[in-house]
Design a protein around this nucleic acid. Structure first.
Lengths: 309, 309
DNA sequence: GCTTTATATAGATTTTTATCTATATAAGGG
DNA sequence: CCCTTATATAGATAAAAATCTATATAAAGC
């Protein structure tokens, strides 16, 4: 019986295979791993030789994994998972709070998450953070890969295989240019507000989703003049008088409301919440559990105190 | 982040660790792996360095695994299991009947199992066989490790987590020295038989277990003069006139009855059966399934045809 | 058609892994 | 006490693994 790795390759080769599978290309994987493309190509060749069968075929610019390749990818994942679990168990035994916390957050959460993380890291300086930002739809897609500890949404998808931890209010408030005629009025009729030129986030964003639902329930339709793919761009458009909008208070916190006025409109703010979502199928690491404990114990209070506008 | 195997060692080192754990010693493992003892010692040292903690301590001549060591053993097993599963899936995909069939059989089964295996291997020459022999008690102990595809018993333990496949009759017959006064008699009274000097297998053996139970049910007690730990030794003792005994027909098959006579005793032979037992918790490999199919389809008939005495 | 993107192969080099022989040290058993 | 059993360490060597630079070939895109 041949030595084990003569039959299945080395751990390094399996690592490289997973990177190629993930990136979808040899060149992409080489960049991600800081290697040259020929290194990756050669390692994959050796792995295929060890296994005894081609792992993928090249179709023009695309790599098409063979069934064998997919099975080897699966096993490589299992092995990496076993190793990851070992490291967690060892860390547990050592009472170490070290490792990587992986978060994927919707765009609007990027305004407060770094502050929350900063405070968390003061307590646990050994923890690394891997922090990805995307709109709601992108984060939902990313969840399918299951590589993150938590996903931060204000409107999590309806899933039975998700753990949801509500952790913070996320009020969506009406804003206008500072000095706007409506800015000095109280209890502005909603219809007056939505008749203004209205700026809204792109389809797929949680903020747009919440606004559309709220307006639908109230039976009003905003006078949309511009769809904008960034909270910052919306703020600047409002500041320059292009229209009014509704944004999360979080985008306005930490000094983010200069040049803007909050409008007092009936039926607003839209009351939403922030959730930490995690996959039930994913065993939480110590780091993940530590973060969750921290958020519930003190991170929440700290973030709320920054929401006054 | 350091390269994977810098944190957990190489697959080879994990293989070696498992051998040390299994053999209980560095020297034992080196023999099992056909390596020198210092090689094994060095590889374990490197593995402990990769993991960052001692894996075992030496207490005089004994190795005591640390908790960390046990966790690494566990992960090594998971990894080997994943690799084993991959190989089975690949073999499945290739329609290959190759791999290793692992059997652990009680002593008496060693008389026919090699013949059965020989015929099986003519059909599937790519299959390797790993074949262990022990008495009933030893095989039951071995089952706790769950490393074998099948365990061959005539009296399997009563377990809910076992699959049992009855596959062959195992008649236990009375024997005496060729030319013995009783050898020409028909329908010998049982009491006459058990009054002869009686030779019996050692406690823990399936044959002894079956005989004791049968005699208990019939309310007789054999005149035991010798306990012998081997079927062959019993046969030779009987041949030289030291007494009579009861042994499985299988020990007498394939030319194994020269110098012996079978006695026609009332209430004998004891009718027992051979079982292939497998653990429900263990996913059967293709090879295991193939063997089971073979046994049920033709191996059984072949073995029965050799039982005429 | 030309340029860009993408993988494979060749050749070379460095580093690492795996293993051996020789020896030292310690513990257990008679 | 001496011999045997057992692991660790030192030093050396060969093989394998990992990686790079250079180049060839093919397909896609403009």
């Amino acid at each position: 019986m041949a030595r084990l790795h003569a039959r299945i390759g080395t751990l390094r080769q399996l690592e490289i295979l997973l990177a190629v599978y993930k990136e979808g290309s040899v060149t992409g994987a080489s960049k991600a791993l800081f290697l040259t493309q020929p290194t990756v190509s050669m390692q994959l060749k050796k792995l295929a030789e060890a296994v005894g069968t081609p792992l993928y075929e090249q179709l023009g610019r695309k790599l098409i994994f063979t069934q064998t390749g997919l099975e080897v990818v699966r096993t490589a994942r299992e092995i990496m998972e076993s190793i990851g679990q070992l490291e967690m168990r060892l860390a547990d035994m050592q009472g170490l709070k070290a490792g990587t916390l992986r978060l994927a957050v919707v765009t609007t959460a990027k305004y407060f998450i770094p502050h929350l993380l900063g405070e968390f890291l003061q307590h646990y300086p050994q923890i690394d953070i891997d922090f990805k930002v995307g709109n709601r739809e992108q984060i939902i897609d990313r969840m399918a890969e299951g590589e993150d500890d938590f996903y931060v949404f204000s409107h999590p998808p309806r899933h039975n295989d998700l753990n949801l931890h509500e952790f913070l209010p996320n009020p969506l408030v009406a804003i206008a240019q500072q000095g706007h005629p409506l800015s000095s009025e109280r209890n502005i009729p909603l219809q007056t507000f939505v008749d203004q030129p209205f700026l809204i986030r792109e389809p797929g964003s949680g903020t747009r989703y919440a606004i559309e639902r709220h307006f639908e329930q109230l039976g009003v339709e905003p006078n949309v003049r511009m769809t904008v793919e960034s909270n910052e761009a919306i703020k600047h458009a409002v500041m320059s008088g292009l229209g009014v909008s509704i944004l999360s208070s979080h985008t306005l916190a930490f000094g983010g409301s200069s040049g803007l006025a909050r409008l007092d409109v009936e039926h607003l703010p839209v009351t939403t919440r922030w959730y930490l979502a995690s996959l039930k199928a994913r065993q939480p690491s110590i780091v993940a559990r530590t973060f969750l404990d921290y958020v519930e114990a003190c991170g929440r209070q700290s973030m709320i105190s920054h929401l006054d506008l």
